[in-house]
Amino acid sequence: MEMEIFKESQVQKEKFRAAANKLLNSCFIVKKKEDTRNDYIFIIQNKEFFVEYFDLLGYKIEINENQGVVALTNINGTGRLRLKKIESILLLILRLLYIEKRKELSLTEDVVVLTDEIHQKYSMLKIEAKSNLDKTTLRDAIRLFKRYNILTNIDRDVTLSDARIKIYPSVLFAVPNDNLNSIYEAINEKLNKYAMGSESSDDEEADQD
């Protein structure tokens, strides 16, 4: 049976297809992100159709209106993005910075960090295998997280110490947790484990699909 949304106008069909494709490609749709804001609003207005559609494909769609994020996960746990260890560390650092900055800002203000702040957090870990975060690794990680609508760089050269990076609330959903304090503690614990060298695996699974 044809879904009701596909019985609507051609414009509605195209809006649905565009939003659905963005979710499949990026895993996150963010209200605060300019090029996905309209998709976010459309999904909110037609959430029952999106839930039904993605359920047929084996996906679960999570809509968090407080954070302004729509997240997509695979019901069967397949198709997970495998992150390199260094990428996992940087993702944890970005979450930590987001939570710290968020406490100082109103809900309407964007969370913006400097590349130097990322380097400072990384240096605190004192990782023997890779004591310094090189430009190529940082640039590649930023490009990857940007693809998944977790952040965007305001300045072109992200390797400069004063380069600004805007972090979106979708960073909180990479590993879901309902309590910000719990997330903060979990990240610190994870970072401490890395610093102590107790994480032996070179690769980890991220919760993006």
Rank of each mutant, 00 (worst) to 15 (best):
K166M: 15
K166N: 08
K166P: 06
K166S: 06
I167E: 06
I167V: 11
I167H: 08
Y168G: 01
Y168S: 06
P169Y: 09
P169S: 05
P169E: 04
S170R: 09
S170C: 05
S170N: 09
S170H: 08
V171T: 15
V171S: 06
L172A: 01
L172T: 00
L172M: 11
L172Y: 00
L172E: 12
F173S: 02
V175D: 12
P176S: 09
P176R: 08
N177G: 13
N177D: 13
D178S: 00
D178I: 03
D178T: 06
D178L: 04
D178Q: 03
D178H: 02
D178Y: 04
N179G: 00
N179C: 01
N179R: 09
N179T: 02
L180D: 07
L180T: 02
L180E: 10
N181S: 13
S182H: 06
I183L: 14
I183E: 15
I183H: 09
Y184T: 08
Y184M: 07
Y184C: 04
Y184E: 06
E185I: 11
E185L: 14
E185T: 01
E185V: 14
A186G: 12
A186D: 02
A186S: 14
N188L: 15
N188P: 02
N188I: 14
N188F: 11
E189Q: 07
E189D: 05
E189V: 04
E189S: 12
E189I: 05
K190F: 00
K190D: 07
K190W: 06
L191F: 08
N192R: 12
N192C: 03
N192D: 10
N192H: 11
N192L: 12
K193Y: 03
K193A: 00
K193Q: 12
Y194P: 01
Y194N: 08
Y194W: 08
Y194K: 01
A195F: 02
A195S: 15
A195T: 02
M196G: 00
G197E: 07
G197M: 02
G197F: 06
G197Q: 01
G197A: 06
G197S: 02
S198N: 07
S198K: 09
E199G: 00
E199C: 04
E199S: 02
E199I: 15
E199T: 00
S200I: 08
S201K: 10
S201Q: 15
S201I: 12
D202A: 11
D202S: 13
D202G: 14
D202H: 14
E204G: 07
E205R: 09
A206M: 06
D207H: 04
D207L: 13
D207N: 10
D207P: 03
D207S: 05
